[in-house]
Design a protein around this nucleic acid. Structure first.
Lengths: 332, 332
DNA sequence: AGAAATTGCTACAACGATTTAGATTTGCCG
DNA sequence: CGGCAAATCTAAATCGTTGTAGCAATTTCT
């Protein structure tokens, strides 16, 4: 039913290779035959079969976009940006949701079956082993929002979570908080541990500052709410650095619900700066996660890998800055 | 570099067809050769090339997921559900972001090039012509969140927007509101017009009720905020039916900002019931859009179309119910 | 003008699978 | 054990494209 290159060749009265060359940029073809071919092609409504061509070229222009964060609004921003960037370069996102997947083998097989040219793993909670096993399976991989290391096995782009912890600590100190807490996400994520490291390190320089740490069950509103409710019942700190904006909003809810006010009674500092953090009803002071730049960097890297440049794996750190809104008291 | 069916055949000492049959369910093969083949396959780490097989079978198991709603949080719920459902049936989502696309031709070509087995168009703002031109290009299409009609050219699943308008009207009337407004999304969307139709129709049965209508520039927080600010300056209605939750939250913001209170001074009724509508800081009374069921229905339909059952195009309506929270006053 | 280099074309063999047709083997029965 | 049908195999054609030879026509050089 669909019209093939063969049909076009026949209609234009040329060989199949001539038609093929007509559609491959930079190939040698005369204006005369090009005209004939293009005429025939548009008459028949021909468009080349990308899958068939991938058989011989070995390139599919398919890029696996793998994530387990389908509940965090900031990932909608990610999906928006990453699809646009890929499309802009003629690449196609093959979306993989591994929310209930604990083992990479399945997704590896699937991505190999579709011979994706590269994979973008987008997650801050996935164990490092996930992305590395993609690499070991022979794929080109970029890990966005991953953990930065000195000797990376693959390309990693994201904020430095240790640094983010330090930034958070400095911000709270600057505003005169002395009894502070870290309301973290699940301990299983390396990002959680890294942030804790930086946060504790920076606070540790001050003798008069106390730190309490607790872990929410998940990066979710409910988990943040539950954990903050528990904290309030035990006598809360003056301010909390939360592992995530959604978690923060859960915490805010619990605080208001307890009849306390933010930032007068308790301060909250989020992380990510998702769009909604700026909505007045929420108005969350938070650390900005530069999704746009990370996406652009990631897709750039993919593009470069596909053009043959085999660069050594590197970690690329992005700056994270505090966005001031209404959930921390002003500096004294 | 990658291991092919040929390699496996050689290693197992059988013909290529034997290996192929071993991987096609329901094919005739003896236990003995099956064992040999499976041994060889797992030794070599073979996984069949889905693209190559699609060449002869004509099926790719690729499903285009096309949307222009990458800014509305409810679509993150959609992406989560739809990817899971597709994956659960061995189908692969090829994501297409047509946020800045006004013309279907490009995406049609692209989807044809990758010979997707079917397309799910997910949007309530895309003109009907978009989905129908996919159909005309010969693709199997399901339109989720589309406009229901009596004689559809394609499968459409979603709430009946006219009915949603009626439901909204009845809810406001029940609570004793008499001067009401429709704070709609852009007029270009058919969903906007349908909701208006139902809303006005139901209100029209009551002589003592007045209706004002205005249109936000987009389905966004800022647009909702701006429009409500304008409305407040001209003397607002008692309650508004908003075209969308995000729009509603923008409106809420403007109202609070003006020193008025919800629901005492102004009532707000949203539409969609996205997850955040339930967060206490927002606590929005809204009409539930059953995303889960719509997705399940859509993927079911895709699945059925792919199993050969050529059913006539049909519109499937889903119920929409009001979820009561805190932005409408209680019935008198 | 004749040799050499360049262009532009066609024919044909891949790419990695499936599928058809035909050849073998196996199982069953008297 | 012979005969017949069913089960299972192999070889070859095919899917729609690209890439490599090789040939013909044209251009360039001396």
């Amino acid at each position: 039913m669909p019209v093939t290159l063969r049909d076009v060749a026949q209609a234009a009265g040329v060989s199949r290779s001539a038609v093929s060359r007509c559609f491959t940029p930079g190939a040698s073809i005369s204006d005369k035959t090009r005209a004939k071919v293009e005429q025939a092609a548009s008459d028949l409504g021909y468009s080349p079969n990308a899958l068939a061509s991938s058989l011989t070229t070995g390139r599919t222009k398919l890029v696996g976009v793998v994530s387990n964060n389908f509940h965090n609004p900031i990932f909608l921003e990610f999906f928006d940006r990453v699809t646009r960037e890929l499309q802009g370069r003629g690449l196609r996102p093959l979306l993989v949701n591994l929310s209930d997947e604990t083992d990479p083998t399945q997704s590896i097989r699937m991505l190999q079956q579709y011979s994706v040219d590269a994979v973008i793993v987008a997650s801050s909670t996935l164990p490092v082993s996930f992305a590395t096993s993609y690499v070991e399976a022979g794929m080109r991989v970029v890990h966005s929002f991953g953990r930065l290391t000195d000797s990376p096995k693959l390309h990693v782009l994201g904020i430095d979570n240790v640094e983010a912890g330090r930034v958070a600590a400095r911000e709270l100190l600057r505003r005169g908080y002395r009894r502070v807490g870290f309301l973290a996400g699940p301990l299983s994520a390396t990002s959680t541990r890294d942030r804790h490291t930086g946060f504790a390190e920076e606070l540790g320089r001050h003798r008069d500052v106390s730190l309490s740490v607790s872990y929410a069950q998940a990066y979710s509103f409910d988990a943040g709410r539950a954990e903050m409710t528990r904290l309030l019942s035990m006598g809360p700190a003056e301010a909390y650095f939360c592992g995530d904006d959604v978690l923060s909003i859960g915490a805010l809810s619990a605080i208001r619900d307890a009849g306390l006010s933010v930032p007068d009674d308790v301060g909250i500092l989020g992380l990510n700066n998702m769009e909604m953090a700026g909505w007045e009803l929420i108005n969350l002071t938070t650390i900005h996660n530069p999704v746009d730049e990370i996406v652009r960097g990631s897709v750039d890297l993919v593009d470069r890998m596909l053009s043959g440049a085999e660069t050594a794996p590197q970690s690329i750190a992005f700056d994270c800055k505090v966005v001031e809104r209404g959930t921390l008291r002003p500096a004294p």
